[in-house]
Amino acid sequence: MQMIKLMVKDDVMSGVAKIPIEVDSLTPDNLFGKNEAEIKAVKVWWGNRQENTGDLFEVSVDGAAGSADEVKIVFEGDLTRVKHIGDGMKAGEIEAHGDVDMHCGAVMEGGRVTVKGNADCWAGREMRGGELVIEGDAADNLCAMYRGEMTGMTGGKVTVGGNAGECVGQYMAGGEIVIKGNADVLAGYAMRGGRIVIEGDAAIPGADMIKGEIIVKGDVEMLPSFKYIGVETIEAETYDKYIGDYAMGEKKAKGTLYVRKK
C-alpha cells in the first residue's frame, strides 16, 4: 500500500483571486510507479498555465504499491478550488479532507473516492463505475450528463451523506445513487435506468423519465404527469407507486417513482 499526501500550499489560495487547480492528472493510475520527485513534476493546470504539482502542493509519499489499486492519494488543505479530483480514475483510492470543487469523480470507472466534506457541482458526472462517497452535501448535477449528452451516470455507486442540489442523476442510465438528506428539484430528470434513493424530501422528481427507479422516503412535490398505480411494499415499508413521465407519452412512460406512505 502506498500513501501519497498532497497538501495544497497556503499561499496558493491566499490571493484576491482564488484560481482553481485542476488535478485530473493526479489519479492513482497516473501516479502509480512514480517516486516523490516524479510526482512533484507531474503537471497540473492552474488557471491558464501548467505548474508542477510540487509547486502547488506539499507532497509526501509513504510505502510502496504493486499496482494502481494499492495507491491511496489523500488531498488536504483548502480544496474548495481544487477541481477534477479523481476525474477519470480507474483504480485505487482517493480521500479528500475538506470541501472539494467541481467534477469530483467525473467519468470515473473504478476505485473509490471519499470526500470528507461537501462536493461542488458535477460530482460523479458521467460516472461509469467505482464508488464515490460524499460525506457532506452535493451541489447541482450530481452524476448528470455533460451538456448536450443523453447519457449521464451508467454505473457505480454514489452516496451523499447530506443534501443534493438540482438534477441529481439527469439522464442517468445505470448505477445507484443514495441521498441521505433532501434532493432539490428534478432528481432523476430524463432518467433512462438505474436507481436513485432519496431518504429525505424531493421536489418534482422523475420529470421526463422513461426508465429506472426513484424511491423517496420523505415528502414529495409531485409532477402533474405521473399516474398513480397503487401501493407496494419495499423492505417492509409501504410506498405509493407512480408510473411516468406521461408527458413523454404512454409508450415511453416506463419510469417508476415510489413515495413512502406517511
Binding site: 428534478l186 418534482i204 409532477l223 402533474p224 404527469s225 399516474k227 413521465d245 406521461y246 408527458a247 404512454e250
Partner: peptide
C-alpha cells in the same frame, strides 16, 4: 412553470385524466 408545462404536455399527449384539478 415547470409543473404547468408538464400538465399542458400531458393533456396534449392525451392523458387529461391523470392531471390534477389544479396545477
Amino acid at each position: 412553470d415547470f409543473l404547468l408545462f408538464s400538465a399542458v404536455r400531458a393533456v396534449l399527449m392525451g392523458y387529461e385524466d391523470i392531471v390534477p384539478d389544479e396545477v
